[in-house]
Design a protein around this nucleic acid. Sequence first.
DNA 1: GCGACAG
DNA 2: ATCTTGTCGC
Length: 230
Amino acid sequence: MPPSPAPSLEERKRLISLQEKIASEIVFEDRFSEGVVAGVDQAFISRKDGREMVISGAVAFDSTLRPLSKSWAILDTTFPYVPGLLSFREGPTALEAVKRLETRPTILFVDGCGINHPRRAGLASHIGVTLNVPTIGVSKNVLCGTFDPPGRVGDASPLVYVGERVGYVLFSKKRCRPIVVAPGHKVSVDGALDLARRYLRDNKLPEPCFAAHQQANLVKRQILSGEVSF
DNA sequence: GCGACAG
DNA sequence: ATCTTGTCGC
């Protein structure tokens, strides 16, 4: 039996209208500062008894990437993975982890889509509007939109969806598939590309995303080994 | 009608 | 995302 029941058509309609409301509140201009740069990412635990849980890890840095604070949160899964509705699966836990950071982010990197979404309401936009925090979405795969593959490391190609430029596909590291960066909330399309590039270090993903991924998986390992309980 | 489809 | 060891390449 599935961990979380598939949403009915009526339920989907309700969630989609929720996304449309969120999309209507997105600010598309750059209105962020880089005082506290953070990242949030999720990991999952599926137990033998059929239960599935979401773990979110968040990490905050100053503008020079010096660590400021970390946090995490864990919740039971209540929604399955449905392309276009990821926010309802990972959003609750991610929001909680970000709230638990001692330092409120002034710009937050989120794993997933931003406005590069069928209703311009990817996880990054969802979190940004909900917390009124500037966000940028970073993903490893394209949900929607087309692009010409960037040729060299450092290059970026516009990601276009229904005639609109919704983000960029960035060749972030040699021998790695390019990543997708897009505005979540209070960040412009070019601002998102600039942020992604400036916070890239030695990894495929910008440092806030990389660190958040590590944090989520560290907590997961600690929970599985009994070092940490909840 | 048939695929594609963030994590 | 997750299931999983080694392995090829830089």
